[in-house]
Design a binder for these strands. Sequence first.
DNA 1: CCTACCGATCGGTAGG
DNA 2: CCTACCGATCGGTAGG
Lengths: 195, 195
Amino acid sequence: MSKTEVKKTKKQIILKEAATLFREKGYSATTMRDIAAKVGVEAASLYNHIKGKEQILSKICFSLADNYTTQMALIVVNDDSPLEKIKELLLLHIQVNAMSSPLASVMNDEWRHLTEPDRSEFLVQRRTYESQFLAIIEDGIADGSIDVPDSKIALYTMLSSIRWLQHWYHANRDMDVESVQNTIIGLLMKGIQKK
Amino acid sequence: MSKTEVKKTKKQIILKEAATLFREKGYSATTMRDIAAKVGVEAASLYNHIKGKEQILSKICFSLADNYTTQMALIVVNDDSPLEKIKELLLLHIQVNAMSSPLASVMNDEWRHLTEPDRSEFLVQRRTYESQFLAIIEDGIADGSIDVPDSKIALYTMLSSIRWLQHWYHANRDMDVESVQNTIIGLLMKGIQKK
DNA sequence: CCTACCGATCGGTAGG
DNA sequence: CCTACCGATCGGTAGG
């Protein structure tokens, strides 16, 4: 291993341990000394790898937001029907919230502790994602495959309905992943489809 | 107004302003000086009305949790069908999350900052509520009106799907309340009902 | 309800 | 990566 690789690994460890603590206690209640203890160094040593506490939060939030943005870009341009695209997006959300656990919790619940200009940039990225999702729902309404009174309410209801996985799944790892996916997607797709 | 009434009002003001700040910045990032400034007194004066920061959080969480517990008790014993009971519970959640805004946000997102024994008591109360809700879903499966592969997953998906209202509604007060209710309840009820 | 103030702890820096 | 330490700020108390 080269020197840069070792350094990169240590930074990743810091981000991972920080994310776990942020989920447990929240960003503000987590101290640099808490993070240092989990990593196994003194608090002062963290600053050789990261700029500060705010940068840790920023790195976590944007790494996952970028992932969502990338996946959405692929789904927007594929040839699937609106109904199929929505199913793909729901699957993406379920997998992220269930699997990459602490990252998803931090991005969803702690982003408000971002300071400018990160906070604004994050919100722009999220708003873009949501409007792309909304356009797909409206395509489905236009072609008659989807029937909901209000597309925005349907969007937020679907996105929100998956969030509980981030708090629940890692305590119930015995649960079958596919059965979770099938039940949630089944319920929501049946809920928006034209009878 | 008697002296005790005046005192009670001031305490209520403190709880209300604190809840608003807790929703905005989180419990840990909110200081007693922040709360005092909103109330219009010095930080030290708050302690004439409340014991401390932890007690403010505790009062907020339990006031709303008690409300849910009371409403659930009424619905459990009424003569409605499982499907109707679920509709009533969803309506309760929508109204609480949309209307009593800051209280709902704090109970949902900041309860983990409760210290023992409050934390355990809160979790017991929540677990009881959830198991009563679950029993109603299972009644509906038993009588053939509900069709979901897994009742627990359906429960958490429904409860979670309403949470976005607490962040969104107070920024969109122009939205018609009934249209919000109808869209969410329509989507979820269609999602769980037997075709 | 205020002024004055406390011990503890925070994020972060200096210097090696 | 450490020791030593900083200015700021925290929740809360004393005393009136």
